[in-house]
Nucleic acid binder design. Structure first.
Length: 594
RNA sequence: GGUCGCGUAGCUCAGUUGGAUAGAGCAGCAGCCUUCUAAGCUGCCGGUCGCAGGUUCGAAUCCUGCCGCGAUCACCA
């Protein structure tokens, strides 16, 4: 990194010129803003204390020192205490010639060692996947890709909540009102069918509650005392007792759900290395809790329930085992965390889970370290914000939940009609066209969601999400397709990429693009350190935008100087390659034609 | 009420460990296709960075208070 070189020498300059010690990491260096001449800028205000000179004088001295010491530097200028450094063109063209053919550019070599385990998706089996899950899945997938590019070995896992009272509600509803209905004979997607059962249960439950309330019972009591609720509870008991017929129905209905989920995951382009089922793992936290009790770390109340006291952390008490010995969510997470640790000995345990669970994960980490698990500090809650709709939050009761499958269908249709309108589909056969529409619509959706910082709540406006102009996925895809078409034409005319280091004039627009390409490895590192796909999204948009300006302003195939033309082709080729690489990190494919 | 988070252009979002004149897109207005894909490019319009203090050579960024919005504080997951 040339920045590092500059940084080190700048620190050295202070040392030599003013005999003061400045650590290289305290040198503030950044890209020069576009309105000034230069590539990198050093802010020299911090050095004035030791130089005891006017800003421009110190800047001048440091500038001269750097120019002497670093052969790649060409010039510098000083504006209001900012030292703008110009790196010579040969440095940039040399960088280009060395890297443009490298498909792996920007990515770190995989380091052998302990993996990162990342959990995402984590659906319940009583409802189809919706927009909230989509954000979760996209973030999880992209963070996994980014970490891989950063040299980590990554294990992608999913923990499916396949047991509990909610599934019993669906099962009960199926027995009562959907008997004999199956995905095959109704032609309804499995997860949707089970979701319908769940909704029906809720509706019928409301009716029963209304009757009880009319008889004078208060609402809270009524909700607990309906015949339906009692039946669901009873079914859960039977499930826990391994009742064969209940288990059979449970297996059948869950299998329907998984078939449905698979379709959705598949279309989203998402998969897992390992899927855990809560029905297999929900018991394993108990033993750890009992040990903690024995060791005196946890305590028992008179009713027999077991708790963690967190007052030392400024928090309250947390229940871990009920009086009847059954476990709660926290207990299960303690167990699955231990399970994962034992299986993989990961360097990090990531959980992509909504920010409404921030407190839960804080407590989980605290309890695990109380229990002596040193790896508790390696648990990272990749917390993401809610997706809101223009009318407010999604509410299943008000039917404002945006279904993942329908969302993708709608995006597809928009992509199709837009393409037809623009005449883009004319030369494509049916298969090619549908593949392209799928790629573009998913690109739009994924980019729309991933460009927002995960930590923040975001607004999902359906109209904006299907926009294909401006800061969007299709804009970037288009730029890639455009370059590809250019390269194809160049090839057919027998033009070659530049061989060696180009030594001619470099246009400012060309240099801008090269500088962006140069920063890609840092972008990946940053995104990995912050678990943030939005950093990659911002970068790739910048790159596409900058390239388009170059493309529009400077002709390539009509350039008569063949060296220049070849140089621009190399630059274009490299840009396309990095666009494709960065988009892959977001889980987005790019077309060669559109 | 306690804790945590958020508040930047009409709308959606960027804004690096505090640095130059706070940036994009959308929307609106005006232009650019006989020349490499116009899903593109150029220009204009648009800001009291919620408010008030403080720290600093310098604050959208750090601290304090206030206002507004959200999440959470379950023997739910």
């Amino acid at each position: 990194m040339i920045e590092t070189t500059i940084r080190n020498h700048a620190a050295q300059a202070i040392n030599v010129l003013y005999s003061a010690n400045v650590a290289p990491e305290h040198v503030i260096i950044q890209k020069t803003r576009k309105d000034f001449e230069g590539d990198f800028t050093i802010n020299i205000f911090p050095f004035l204390k030791v130089s005891r000179e006017k800003p421009d004088v110190t800047a001048e001295k440091i500038g001269n020192y750097l120019l002497e010491q670093i052969p790649e530097l060409e010039d510098f200028n000083i504006i209001k205490g900012f030292l703008n450094i110009v790196v010579g063109n040969l440095f940039w063209t040399g960088f280009l010639s060395e890297n443009y053919g490298n498909r792996q550019y920007g990515k770190q070599e995989k380091t052998a060692g302990r993996p990162v385990v990342i959990e995402y998706s984590s659906p319940n089996t009583n409802k189809p996947l919706h927009l909230g899950h989509v954000r979760n899945n996209l973030i999880g997938w992209s963070v996994a890709k980014i970490l891989e590019a950063n040299g980590n070995d990554v294990v992608k896992v999913n923990l499916v909540n396949d047991r509990g009272i909610h599934i019993c509600k669906s099962m009960l509803a199926w027995e009562k009102w959907f008997m004999d209905a199956s995905p095959d004979n109704t032609n309804i997607k499995g997860d949707k069918l089970v979701g319908e059962c769940y909704v029906r249960f809720d509706q019928e439950l409301k009716k029963e509650v209304a009757v009880l309330v009319a008889d004078g019972m208060n609402k809270d009591d009524a909700e607990k005392n309906t015949p339906l609720m009692a039946a669901a509870q009873e079914m859960l008991q039977k499930w826990e007792n391994n009742d064969p017929s209940v288990r059979e129905l449970w297996k059948t209905m869950n299998a329907w759900v998984y078939q449905g989920f698979d379709v959705t995951y598949d279309r989203l382009g998402i998969y897992f290395d390992k899927i855990y089922y809560e029905s297999d793992t929900f018991l394993i936290g108990k033993e750890i809790v009992r040990e903690g009790l024995k060791m005196g770390i946890l305590f028992k109340k008179e009713d027999g329930s077991i708790w963690a006291g967190l007052s030392g952390e400024g928090l309250d008490e947390k229940l871990l085992l009920r009086a009847d010995g059954t476990s709660v969510y926290m207990t299960q997470d303690i167990g699955t965390a231990q399970l994962r640790y034992d299986e993989y000995h990961p360097v990090k345990l990531l959980y992509v889970v909504g920010n409404e669970q921030n407190y839960h994960f804080d407590v989980l980490k605290i309890i695990l370290s109380m229990l002596g698990r040193k790896w508790a500090k390696d648990i990272v809650h990749v917390s993401y914000g809610m997706v809101e709709l223009p009318h407010g939050k999604m509410k299943s009761r008000e039917g404002t939940v945006v279904d993942a499958d329908e969302l993708m269908d709608n995006m597809y249709q928009t992509a199709e009609s837009m393409a037809v309108e623009l005449g883009k589909a004319d030369e494509l056969n049916k298969d090619e066209a549908s593949q392209l529409f799928e790629m573009i619509s998913l690109g739009a959706l994924k980019y729309f969601i991933l460009r927002v910082d995960p930590k923040k709540n975001m607004l999902f406006n359906p109209e904006e999400s299907i926009d294909f102009n401006g800061n969007t996925g299709p804009f970037i895809q288009y730029t890639h397709a455009r370059i590809h078409s250019l390269l194809k034409k160049a090839k057919s005319r027998g033009l070659k990429l530049y061989d060696g280091v180009f030594n001619g004039d470099v246009h400012p627009k060309e240099k801008e693009v090269i500088k962006l390409l140069y920063s890609y490895p840092e972008v990946i590192k940053d995104a990995a350190a912050q678990y943030s796909p939005s950093i990659v999204a911002a970068f790739v948009y910048d790159l596409a935008k900058e390239y388009n300006q170059f493309y529009q302003e400077i002709s390539i195939l009509r350039e008569e100087d063949t060296d220049k033309a070849a140089f621009r082709l190399s630059l274009s080729h490299f840009t396309a390659s990095v666009i494709s690489s960065a988009m892959e990190l977001l889980g987005i494919h790019v077309p060669e034609k559109m």
